[in-house]
Write a protein that binds this DNA or RNA. Sequence first.
DNA 1: TATTTGACATACACCCCGTATGTGTCATTA
DNA 2: TAATGACACATACGGGGTGTATGTCAAATA
Lengths: 202, 202
Amino acid sequence: MARRRRAEMLEETRARLIDAARAAFAEKGYAGASMDELTARAGLTRGALYHHFGDKRGLLAAVVDRLDSEMAARAHEIGQRHTNAWEGLLAEGGAYIELARDPEIQRIVLLDGPAVLGDPSQWPSQNRCLLATMTTLETLSREGVVKPVDVEAAARLVNGAALNAALWVAASDDADVLERATDAFRQLASGLLTRDSSTTEY
Amino acid sequence: MARRRRAEMLEETRARLIDAARAAFAEKGYAGASMDELTARAGLTRGALYHHFGDKRGLLAAVVDRLDSEMAARAHEIGQRHTNAWEGLLAEGGAYIELARDPEIQRIVLLDGPAVLGDPSQWPSQNRCLLATMTTLETLSREGVVKPVDVEAAARLVNGAALNAALWVAASDDADVLERATDAFRQLASGLLTRDSSTTEY
DNA sequence: TATTTGACATACACCCCGTATGTGTCATTA
DNA sequence: TAATGACACATACGGGGTGTATGTCAAATA
């Protein structure tokens, strides 16, 4: 086995720690996760952890950042599948709702994240999901499909509604809740449409 | 000074603990608040706390329950001021946004609450805010002002949007953010209107 | 090869929660 | 009114967890 370069090992330990933390935080919650146990499962000790991430919060921030990226990528990719931009926006919202059914995302990003790291809109990850929604809205606004709205404000509310719906869906076992939530989401979102588009498309 | 009845004292210690906890949780956050310090400030010890509330979570639940009641009462009262039910709903949403600017509500109900107690819609407080919105929507639906929506789903999304907007408003210092948020909220909410009402009233 | 840097491990101190146990006071009953 | 039981709260203890200070050893550099 060839000797690996130092930088490679460094990146690998970081990744191992983040993976272990992701699993531990998802399973036990942030407060319930023990750093000793977590690092041990990664074959390391707390020393490595504090060296790389400063403290427990820093580790959570790193985990959230990765999850946030994955979410944005998936949601945006789903949105892109639609040629119709408006349907794309709706699909994007629906994607958030479905994404948040993932217990990891639920627990880490939606529950513990805000409590420990503060308001998501201030996260260094820039809340990539929000940015994605904003660009989509920007396009739709230029095309005259949606009213000339304050793009940032609208994007925040749309995402907020979607995420809240996601929590609801996740907490209830009913299968039809997902459909009820997405339907309501479509109705709400239609409030952004211009009157023209609302008659033709909705 | 007349001797007070035992039940009175019991209620008073409960209230003192809740008040102290409310202040401590708001200032230091749930995790950062020490039970020793908190109870000492109330002139008691942890013994009283565990006797009345079981554990730290129980105390938070009690605090949240009180805050939730206060919020619902205020929002509903504001909504009642409007004779027009639709304007009442909008005002109610706006009230949530303003209420959530209160640092206590922000930190305790919106951030720590969900992380520690789980999804708000499962709280024993029944999420009074949500119920208030649902009844309002129910009325509007019967009157034909809003489309025949799934009342619960719509209420959840509307509230979610409002609360998310509140976090945004609270985190940013800009004065005009509040107006931008409320405007966007009105637009979004208009998606629930029937076409008739949307032409006459909006 | 000598030296220095840095990635990690080890050890220590402090804090905090939950529980088990003790104590005094108030209601109740004879 | 004296005894008894329940209850509200205080005290004491044990376990665990975080953060920091210190040590160690390999890799990079000259």
